[in-house]
């Protein structure tokens, strides 16, 4: 992994948010950036490169990358349904959404479809409890989920893949 000059400029911009010598603070935003550039997950190579960019020890990157739930340490499917299952969403039927996805795609939480197109994950409260049931889809939220909406999201995921 190696960034183009253009990307390196973006890295420098991130580091410029902090006082001199406090560049380690850029680690979280930088890991988001590296993950995006690396196809949605953090390989150990990508993490080592991050350490190099910030001039910190690789273990400092591993420690952080494994702590936060948004960093993927394994390659991920093309479309990831991250359905919230915490109390408030449960009250509004999140279990039914998970069941319906199973019915349609045959995957349970933690599983990926055989064609690698869809991954289903259950996650904890995403701060959208009033618009439940909901899921995170990439950088966006999908709220007030219904069976019809799931159908549409599955169709969308399939078109995106073609």
């Amino acid at each position: 992994m190696k960034f183009s000059d253009d990307k390196l400029k973006q890295v420098d911009e991130m580091i410029s948010h902090y006082p001199e010598g406090k560049h380690k603070s850029a680690l979280l935003p930088l890991l988001h950036f590296v993950q995006k550039e690396n196809g949605g997950w953090l390989s150990s190579e990508a993490m080592d490169y991050t350490a190099e960019l910030l001039k910190i020890a690789p273990i400092e990157v591993y420690e952080v990358a494994t702590f936060y739930s948004m960093y993927n340490l394994q390659p991920v499917g093309k479309t990831i349904f991250e359905v919230c299952q915490t109390g408030p969403c449960m009250l509004r039927g999140s279990d039914g959404i998970v069941d319906y996805i199973y019915e349609k795609l045959g995957i349970k939480p933690g599983q990926t479809t055989a064609d690698g197109l869809f991954t289903l994950k259950t996650v904890e409260c995403l701060g959208a409890c009033g618009y439940a049931p909901m899921m995170q889809l990439g950088p966006d939220y999908r709220e007030h989920l219904t069976k019809e909406k799931i159908d549409a999201l599955i169709a969308e995921g399939k078109t995106k893949a073609n």
Binding site: S44, M47, A57, P58, I59, E60, Y62, E63, T66, F67
Partner: peptide, 20 residues
């Protein structure tokens, strides 16, 4: 002064490891 191991993961999954 050269740490290669640390605490990985979080909560009840936390562990001492080197990652690779």
């Amino acid at each position: 002064n050269e740490r290669k191991h640390g605490i990985l993961m979080r909560g009840d999954h936390s562990e001492i490891a080197t990652y690779i």
